[in-house]
Design a protein around this nucleic acid. Structure first.
Lengths: 196, 196, 196, 196
DNA sequence: TATGAATGAGCATTCATTCAT
DNA sequence: AATGAATGAATGCTCATTCAT
């Protein structure tokens, strides 16, 4: 039955979105199952029903994180733009991305003390790293520096995104782009031919 | 009565340290007042006594954050070292600093949804920023770029520290230093004379 | 329409058996309607349908008890065997009867606090008692002792069956028979002629 | 501090009594923590406090059972009376003992599906059995029959007590005594000298 | 008639907070 | 000043029950 599976997927997305909104509204620790349910337009019982018996609050919140990771990783790579420009697109430049960053940051605090979340984080960063390495290789970064450059670049994005999320009024979109460029451009550019 | 005040200061520091240990052990959301009390070797009642009636859990946790901010800001500035080297010293290079970073990150997630914590964060970053601007000015960074460079530098430190805290095995101290240097060195170095 | 009624009877028996298995697996208090449904190979909704609207969990569990009572009472009386031997056949001598005893005992705990169940119990014991009285009369027990002997005999069976159910490894079938015989034989045998 | 330990013991007994009353009033499955608390004149929070964190409803109910076992085992053995007479004293002859039997029976239904309770039951019956063996030996039962006689006797007591608990109007105290005597007397008496 | 998604009440449990000692 | 027992509100969770499909 096709509609069944489709329904599940749609519902899953709707629930994830609701969870994200709820977390963004009340904080990761302040959010109650009722809040997610209200945001999703259903009762807490319905949540349990969807997630199956035995799954609890954690499962619901984890869904929000998985949705964010999925969206972050599914951002289309535009071959016409430089790696730096593409990375900049993942910054909290508009309200949608700001919200994702806020929730993401909230989960980072928890990932430090939660093995399962830490693993999810780890998988996400590994994926991002691999993708970036590929792009950088295509952009002419020499192989022996690929790993380090990618690592530093991801850290730079995280740093700028974090600061911008915490003090949005100090970090308007344009400034975020400039600051990231200031950090990344020299990093990506400085690969002189190994001396002959 | 001098001893009284001194006692209070000592006690305050001890409680803050206990709170930090407790948060690091159980996470910011998992920590209970009992845990802090146990870590401090007293009962929850004693905590209330110290913080005064009406003050609650938040006050205790806030103390932990204030202590961390205080320690971070009180790091001695060594005039013999470059700004980049000094900034590197604030990275999670050893267990003590790793712990402070973990707690700090945990609080960041909460600061996004808590006005008071956000203000505390803001004050801390303002102080760090000012201090860095001063150091950079002394290091020859031209005035018109000071603000931007300092902002970017702090973001870079945050990015590296964050990544290193979340995946310590990927970020041994030496790598943290290298990555930070890779990001900051070009930033601090490239200040050609404004074109005449 | 005969098949309809027959179907109902078959279905009823199947549901009762499912309920008994479910209770034996999870305990009378641990059993959920879902468990019974799963054991019966249907959904909880189907249960409601069978039992009619308004009937609930209690109705389902009661069905299990009624089934057991029915089976216990329908045990064929073998005129070739002594009353003691026949009574012994109702002990938990094999897995099937052990299961019935376990469920039966579980219901006894509830019958103490549930009027309806208590009544069902009462009816069952009355039937057993009457049947036993008849058998004992045939076996030569004088009328004036019939009631007392039957009462004591049923108590003995219950005692042995209870102990054997709770500690099956201490009460292998052979021992159950011996112990019951040790209690019943003197009881049934000792009926001297009332003194003239 | 002496009062502390004493208080705990007193409190424990009071809580156990409250739990027993609550169970007897609403059944083992119907009883809620609130009921026990109300019966004990405190709040549910106080119960948790007494039992410590992590202990839950089960701990409270288990206390009731332990109290009953303790009381049953601490019944003073009167050397002036025959074993049969002493055993009769453990029947549900008055309201206090009737209540204990009811709760005891309620727990038997659960012990069938709960390892921990089963163990507790097992220990109790082992103690009873040992004590009875000793008494029977003193009463002249030959060694080779001690075990079997004790086993059958306990089963008889259980049977009579069970029947009397379930249908108290059919089993007034006097009848309980008679029925038990009818079962036990031949058992205890019939130990002819092994034929020479 | 059957399904299973959804409801919603009921309950245990946790924990910050208070207060008598 | 300190203790820790007690409170009670808050919340997650479980299920029996209902109802639209």
């Amino acid at each position: 039955m096709m509609p069944k599976l489709l329904d599940m997927a749609v519902r899953r997305a709707a629930l994830a979105a609701a969870a994200i909104r709820a977390i963004d509204a009340r904080g990761l620790e302040g959010v109650r199952l009722v809040d997610v349910a209200a945001e999703a337009g259903c009762t807490t019982g319905a949540l349990q029903h969807f997630f199956g018996v035995g799954a609890g609050k954690d499962a619901v919140l984890r869904l929000a994180l998985e949705e964010i990771v999925e969206r972050m990783l599914s951002a289309p790579s535009d071959p016409g733009r430089s790696p730096a420009e593409q990375l900049a697109e993942s910054l909290p430049l508009d309200e949608a991305r700001r919200r994702e960053w806020r929730v993401w940051i909230a989960f980072q605090g928890r990932a430090l003390f939660d093995r399962a979340l830490a693993a999810l984080h780890g998988r996400y960063y590994a994926a991002i790293h691999d993708r970036l390495v590929e792009a950088l290789a295509g952009a002419g970064v020499p192989a022996h520096r690929l790993d380090a450059v990618a690592l530093a670049a991801v850290a730079a994005v995280d740093g700028v995104g974090l600061r911008a999320s915490l003090e949005p009024e100090l970090w308007p979109p344009q400034r975020q782009r400039e600051m990231l460029a200031a950090l990344l451009d020299p990093l990506f550019a400085s690969h002189p031919e190994p001396k002959p």
